[in-house]
Design a protein around this nucleic acid. Structure first.
Length: 447
DNA sequence: TTTTGAGTTGTTCGA
DNA sequence: GTCGAACAACTCAAA
């Protein structure tokens, strides 16, 4: 069993197939629990995601017990083949990967294994409905979310798979060490592993009825906080969907469907991990990242809601989705910087950094993605802050220079004589002007 | 093939 | 302070 982004034992069809249990296989087998630390993925992941992955691997090792995971470092092409041969394995089981890199990697590993008479079996995926499955009446992939969601729900998914009974784990080779992966100073990460994810889910289920209201409020704890667990497969979305009331909890199911929609879009258009989904947007006039980009990255734009979000990213490796949209809109529409620069920064720091969701979330905000909505949607950072952080608590939590301002005053230090007495920077741009400029640049594109 | 209705998440302005 | 209209035109999906 080659684990990748499915770091759990429960509801894991590939593992059941490997162990020959649950009707997935043909009788009990010994299983090698393999994880390969691939430098091609490890290095660009950013220290937060690396640290979280290391903790998650340790948690999975504990769940397995005994010698835990068989960890190998290096090119999967070499490592998987070496381990499979040493184990005299007939089959290597995986959950299918639908990302651009993972697909190519798995095809290569498939061929390399085949040379030794070993099969690569793809059982299940990180999604309730595998990318490529949901099609419209013309058998084409959907390009708009809402009809995708209806068809996705109609398509349906399997019930959660049973947990494996005792598995006979085998270790044909010795483990390598996990590379050093210290958490950056001051970064707080949640407890890793499937048990922690299930605890969080059970706790969050009490809040599901309030989710539709509370989910948009970054000052409240209204979200499930499971994005990192979904990213690493510590929990499968199917497990969550099975616990939802289809009527009352549709809003939460819709958020899971967004994740599946973006995976589907990226599956059909793998080049959009880097390139514009709407190619004409490559022609727009942009500003090369410079001092303003640095101010954005470090949370010193002078716009409290934006700066709070950018500092939350660095402090926690996570940002509330509402704030992700606002800071992304600010970079693209107020600073006129291409979305790829912002997306790369997010991927460097997010503990849940998922290529499909991140890149297409950015493209959506930038207007070059799957958004079918009006072009004139430009977020006003102060209006957004007042609307979704009405008490100012979120801003004060991450921006100490504004803690002396009470209530909503934290959103507009420029209106107060003592607004800047604690070192908070002045606004680096005039939002009203840059909004007009963004619309003008779009108009040029249309012309 | 043509037509029709709809499209996550907004902002501004004037009544 | 609140509320509704205006802000373009286009693409997508299905009837």
């Amino acid at each position: 069993m080659w684990f990748r982004r499915d770091l759990r034992l429960r509801d894991n069809p590939a593992l059941l197939a490997a162990a020959g249990q649950g009707g997935f296989g043909d009788g009990p087998s010994a299983v090698v629990p393999l994880f390969v630390i691939d430098p091609a993925l490890w290095k660009p992941s950013g220290e937060v995601r690396r640290a979280y992955l290391a903790a998650s691997l340790a948690a999975l090792g504990s769940r397995i017990g005994g010698d835990g995971l068989l960890l190998r470092r290096g090119d999967p092409l070499e490592q998987v083949v070496a381990v499979a041969r040493a184990a005299k394995a007939d089959v290597v089981y995986v959950a299918a990967d639908f990302g651009p890199y993972g697909r190519a990697r798995d095809d290569l590993v498939d061929s390399a294994l085949a040379e030794h008479g070993i099969r690569l079996e793809r059982v299940g995926s990180p999604y309730a409905v595998a990318p490529g499955r949901v099609r419209n009446g013309s058998n084409e992939p959907y390009k708009v979310y809402s009809p995708f969601f209806r068809a996705w729900r109609e398509h349906g998914w399997r019930a959660p798979a049973p947990s494996p009974r005792s598995v006979r784990w085998e270790y044909p080779l010795t483990s390598h060490d996990i590379p050093t992966s210290a958490v950056p100073d001051g970064t707080e990460l949640p407890t890793a592993g499937e048990e922690a994810a299930m605890r969080r889910w059970r706790k969050f289920q009490d809040s599901l009825d309030d989710y539709a209201e509370a989910r948009d409020r970054p000052d409240l704890d209204g979200t499930s906080q499971l994005s990192h667990a979904l990213k690493w497969g510590e929990v499968h979305p199917r497990t969550l969907l099975a616990d939802l009331d289809p009527e009352r909890h549709e809003v939460y199911a819709k958020e899971l469907a967004w994740r599946e929609f973006y995976a589907d879009v990226l599956f059909h258009r793998p080049e959009t991990a880097r390139e514009y989904l709407r190619a004409e947007y490559a022609r727009m006039r942009y500003v090369a990242p410079a001092e303003d980009f640095d101010a954005w990255r470090s949370g010193r734009t002078g716009f409290p809601f934006v700066d709070a979000g950018m500092r939350q990213l660095r402090a926690e490796g996570w940002v509330h989705n509402r704030v992700r949209m606002v800071v992304a809109s600010f970079l693209v529409k107020d600073l006129h910087v291409e979305w790829q620069h912002g997306a790369r920064h997010f991927m460097q720091w997010l503990r849940d950094g998922d290529l499909a969701s991140n890149q297409h979330g950015w493209q959506w905000v930038a207007g070059c993605g799957t958004d079918a909505a009006p072009y004139f949607r430009v977020f006003n950072p102060m209006t957004q802050g007042l609307k979704f952080d009405p008490s100012g608590d979120y801003v004060r939590r991450y921006v100490p220079e504004l803690r002396h301002l009470d209530g909503k005053a934290a959103h507009s230090p420029w209106e107060f004589l003592d607004g800047y007495t604690h070192g908070y920077p002045e606004r680096i741009v005039d939002h009203a002007e840059e909004r007009v400029e963004a619309l003008a640049r779009l108009a040029e594109l249309k012309a």
